[in-house]
Amino acid sequence: MATERKLNSAPRVVAHKVLNNNVVISIDVSGQERVLMGRGLGFQLLPTDTIDPAKVEKTFILDQGAGAEHARQLLTTVPYSVIEAVTTAVDEAERALGRSLGRRLQLAIIDHIQYVLERMQKGIRMPTTSMPELRVLHPQEFAAATVMSQSVGASLQTALPEEEALFLTMHILNATRDEPNGTAALLFRRVQHVVTTVEGGLGVKLDPVSPDYARFILHIQFLLQRLVAKAMLRGSDTSFFEFAKHSYPRSYAIAADIKSYVSAATGSDLTDEELLYVIVHVERLANQIVDAATA
């Protein structure tokens, strides 16, 4: 599904099917369905009437297949105020990020926000974690999602829960397929699993605002990206790896667990050179914990 701000300067657009006062379906010259939206656009409009282009505020081009029916139903049942608020907020996010967020994001966000509003009316709040890794790995997307949540809430005069910025960030990442072996969201989940492994091995919750934490998160992200790109670090001198392995047994054991997880998740094994850097980062985090306890 694609979206446009205004109709192109077509000579004549016929209303084909009126879904409600704000939503009309037309068929373009190529036979593709378009959902046209605007306040009062469909009021007293007949299927054979010509549509006034000045009244069209949004245009959704429907994909072929089962998804088109879901999109049509969603755009018909969700209040126009929600659709208007979301599409405006997504436009703002795309401008802030300087890129398109894909053809299906707006529908996904409309569906999500409507579900959030329904939950709020029932007094239901979804449990979530703070996901500090998200802020470190994807600060631009998180910032855009935060503004998006605030923008939608302001438009609807309903403050959305604070955690919506996290959920909207995940939607943005899912819409950005920029890794050769999956989405940015998949990469994030793998990093998150590695963090959980380290915290379990050290028996503590890591400090998400510490510089060592940020360095570790970024290192794991780049490690996973190198793994997918088959561009892992390799070295002929194993003496440093053997030294770290025997000098830091706990950090080595945690790094070995990470290696096992990464191997199962990606089908590729970490080199000793890559594992060495993981050991060093984990040991640095362990020393930070000791320093904090003795301070």
Score class of each variant (00 low, 15 high):
G203C: 12
F222C: 00
A231N: 03
S247P: 03
Y213D: 10
S151D: 10
A256M: 07
V195W: 04
D212I: 01
I220C: 12
T183P: 03
V198W: 10
T158C: 02
H246W: 11
L233V: 12
A255M: 03
A214R: 07
I254H: 05
R189M: 13
M170H: 13
T238Q: 09
G182W: 11
Q221V: 00
A214H: 13
V228Y: 10
F167C: 02
T176S: 14
A154P: 02
A244W: 06
E163S: 15
V195T: 14
R250M: 07
L160D: 02
A244H: 07
A255W: 02
A256H: 11
P211H: 01
A165D: 14
Q157V: 10
I220W: 02
Q221Y: 01
S239H: 11
E164T: 01
G153M: 02
G235S: 15
M170G: 10
L224I: 14
K230R: 13
S247L: 05
S251H: 05
R234Y: 13
E179N: 11
R190P: 00
T197M: 10
T238V: 12
A231P: 00
S239Y: 01
I254R: 07
L168M: 08
K245A: 06
L218I: 13
F241T: 00
L218R: 11
T238W: 08
G235N: 14
G201R: 05
R215Y: 05
I217C: 08
T196H: 12
R226Y: 10
G153K: 03
V195I: 15
A154R: 15
V198A: 02
S239C: 00
D257H: 12
A255T: 07
T197Y: 04
H193K: 11
A244Y: 14
H171Y: 09
I220S: 01
P211K: 05
P249I: 06
V198E: 01
S251D: 02
A255E: 10
L224Q: 13
Y248I: 03
N181Y: 11
P249M: 04
H219P: 00
F188S: 00
I258T: 05
I217M: 06
T196S: 14
F167T: 13
T169R: 05
V194C: 06
R226C: 10
L168F: 12
T196R: 14
Q157E: 07
P211Y: 05
T196M: 06
E199N: 12
L227S: 05
D178W: 01
A184R: 15
A159H: 07
L173S: 03
F188V: 00
P249D: 09
E162Q: 14
I254P: 02
D178C: 02
P180V: 11
K245V: 07
R250Y: 00
T197F: 08
T158R: 14
A165G: 15
T197A: 09
Y213I: 09
D257K: 15
S151L: 05
V194S: 08
E163F: 15
A159W: 01
V204M: 04
A159D: 09
V152P: 00
T197L: 15
P211V: 08
F241H: 04
Q157S: 07
M232Y: 03
E179I: 06
G200I: 01
D178K: 03
E162L: 15
S239F: 11
P249C: 09
T183A: 08
Y252M: 06
D207Y: 04
P211W: 03
L156S: 02
R189Q: 12
I258W: 06
G235D: 15
F241P: 03
Q221G: 09
S236D: 05
M232P: 04
V204Q: 03
